[in-house]
Simulated scan of single mutants.
Amino acid sequence: MWIYEKKLQYPVRIKNPNPALAKLIISQYGGPHGELGASLRYLSQRYSMPYPELRAILTDIGTEELAHLEMVGTIVYQLTRNLTQEEIQKQGFDAYFIDHTTGVYPVAASGAPFNAACIAVTGDTLADINEDLAAEQKARVTYDNILRFADDPDVRDPIKFLREREIVHYQRFGEGLRIATDRLDSKNFYAFNPSFD
């Protein structure tokens, strides 16, 4: 189904290590609004999506989120490579280091490990698409918050790119919601559903 091109969607070339910043950015790897959860959410929702256009949107965006996961992992790796014990301790990376050394582990900035509970899949077209719209906005906010703490242009540029893609995904899910709403309206879905009324 996929063809893997061995290059990042946007280049990541960070010269200066910064484990304190890596500890924040890791949230977009495995945090509650991160790329791992997004990719799994969309690639799982596509199975029960009744409209081919919406399945295509979910597949496209879910696949792109995997590319974003790779970018975030690369950013975290480059921010933590070749650290001294003093740098690890001084920048508050020691607690993470104890469990994972400098491995890229799916965890939130708060320290909570990735949890599949953040993957919302209901099988209901409207509930899932609305969840996806909200998820893209939460990811954008997380990138906004990361940018508040990042002053290194080598870090800011790829983070800005990722933020922009969240906005594009939000727009695509908006198109999907319009498609779904038009089709459900044509069945008079909102006015009367004999299964429940």
Score class of each variant (00 low, 15 high):
Ile57Arg: 06
Ile57Met: 08
Ile57Ser: 11
Leu58Thr: 02
Thr59Pro: 09
Thr59Gly: 07
Thr59Asn: 13
Asp60His: 03
Ile61Leu: 12
Ile61Pro: 01
Ile61Trp: 05
Gly62Phe: 05
Gly62Asp: 11
Gly62His: 08
Gly62Gln: 07
Gly62Val: 10
Gly62Ala: 12
Thr63Gly: 15
Thr63Pro: 00
Glu64Ala: 11
Glu64Pro: 00
Glu65Ile: 03
Glu65Gln: 14
Glu65Ala: 06
Glu65Leu: 09
Glu65Phe: 03
Leu66Glu: 10
Leu66Val: 12
Leu66Phe: 12
Ala67Cys: 11
Ala67Trp: 12
Ala67Asp: 14
Ala67Lys: 05
His68Ala: 12
His68Tyr: 13
His68Met: 13
Leu69Arg: 01
Leu69Asp: 03
Leu69Ile: 07
Glu70Ile: 09
Glu70His: 05
Glu70Asp: 02
Glu70Arg: 05
Met71Gln: 05
Met71Ala: 01
Met71Cys: 07
Met71His: 04
Met71Arg: 11
Met71Thr: 09
Val72Glu: 06
Val72Trp: 00
Gly73Lys: 09
Gly73Met: 08
Gly73Trp: 02
Gly73Asp: 06
Gly73Gln: 04
Gly73Ser: 01
Thr74Lys: 05
Thr74Gly: 02
Thr74Leu: 00
Ile75Met: 10
Ile75Lys: 13
Val76Leu: 04
Val76Phe: 08
Val76Thr: 09
Val76Pro: 01
Tyr77Glu: 11
Tyr77Thr: 15
Leu79Trp: 06
Leu79Val: 00
Leu79Asp: 03
Thr80Leu: 06
Thr80Gly: 00
Thr80Asp: 07
Thr80Met: 03
Arg81Met: 13
Arg81Cys: 15
Arg81Gly: 13
Arg81Lys: 15
Arg81Trp: 15
Asn82Asp: 04
Asn82Glu: 00
Asn82Arg: 07
Asn82His: 07
Asn82Pro: 07
Asn82Met: 06
Leu83Cys: 04
Leu83Tyr: 07
Leu83Phe: 09
Thr84Ile: 14
Thr84Ala: 10
Thr84Asn: 10
Thr84Asp: 10
Gln85Ser: 13
Gln85Gly: 13
Gln85Leu: 05
Glu86Ile: 09
Glu86Asn: 12
Glu86Ser: 10
Glu86Lys: 14
Glu86Thr: 10
Glu86Gln: 15
